[in-house]
């Protein structure tokens, strides 16, 4: 890693650690190793969204050419959101691609991701299935996103009706996450989800 990248991450790390947002438990950054090329981020789900009450973990990789190129960020916590892959955690956000600017920082990236959770852009999707549900069946989308937040990010809301559908697929021999993903993408229609899993 070139000196400029490491020196900047050192400074930014301090900046995030003493920022107001950390005091308010909104964002957090941790080092993974002492070479400063990989970090773990954490953002709180914004209030009044299906992600409220959840803590979302991020993998942050710093390229050698940082800050001339953006950090490579993906969600480690599974999440149901039109601009984040429900399978891989890959993120579709302009500032992590062609709209990156060298004056942006880890702090602005984490805050932008938090803003993305509060304002999805379904017309520029990363996960087409989620985006379609967001646009065509918004109440199911919100319920599913809340359920995923509760299961994977420690959110508060539980839905016994959804849990029982997952349980019935589990008794058929399907793995829990596989069952949840299939039901989520099929609008919690047990029959269609079963069909999808069998094929």
């Amino acid at each position: 890693m070139t000196n400029i990248a490491e020196a900047r991450i050192r400074r930014e790390f301090k900046e995030v650690v003493k920022s107001d947002e950390v005091a308010a438990c909104n964002i957090k950054v941790e080092l993974v190793n002492d070479t400063f090329n990989e970090l773990r981020g954490e953002i709180a789900g914004p209030p009044d969204t299906p992600y409220a009450g959840g803590q979302f973990h991020l993998e942050i990789k710093i390229p050698e050419t940082y800050p001339f190129n953006p950090p490579i960020v993906k969600f480690l916590t599974k999440i149901w959101h039109p601009n984040i892959s429900s399978v891989t955690g890959a993120i579709c956000l302009d500032i992590l691609k062609d709209q990156w600017a060298a004056a942006m920082t880890l702090r602005t990236v984490l805050l932008s991701l938090q803003a993305l959770l509060a304002a999805a852009e379904p017309d520029d999707p990363q996960d087409a299935v989620v985006a379609q549900q967001y646009k065509e069946n918004h109440s199911i989308f919100e319920k599913t996103a809340r359920h995923w937040t509760a299961v994977y990010a420690g959110g508060p809301k539980s839905y016994p009706d959804l849990d029982s559908k997952i349980l019935s697929l589990k008794t058929m021999g399907f793995e829990e996450h596989q069952a949840r993903a299939a039901l989520s993408s099929k609008g919690w229609d047990l029959e269609r989800a079963t069909e999808y899993l069998i094929n």
Partner: peptide, 17 residues
């Protein structure tokens, strides 16, 4: 040196875009 390296990639001001 910093800004010349940036401007060779993207011809916008990194602060105000």
């Amino acid at each position: 040196d910093c800004i010349d390296d940036w401007l060779m990639r993207s011809f916008i001001c990194p602060s105000c875009l």
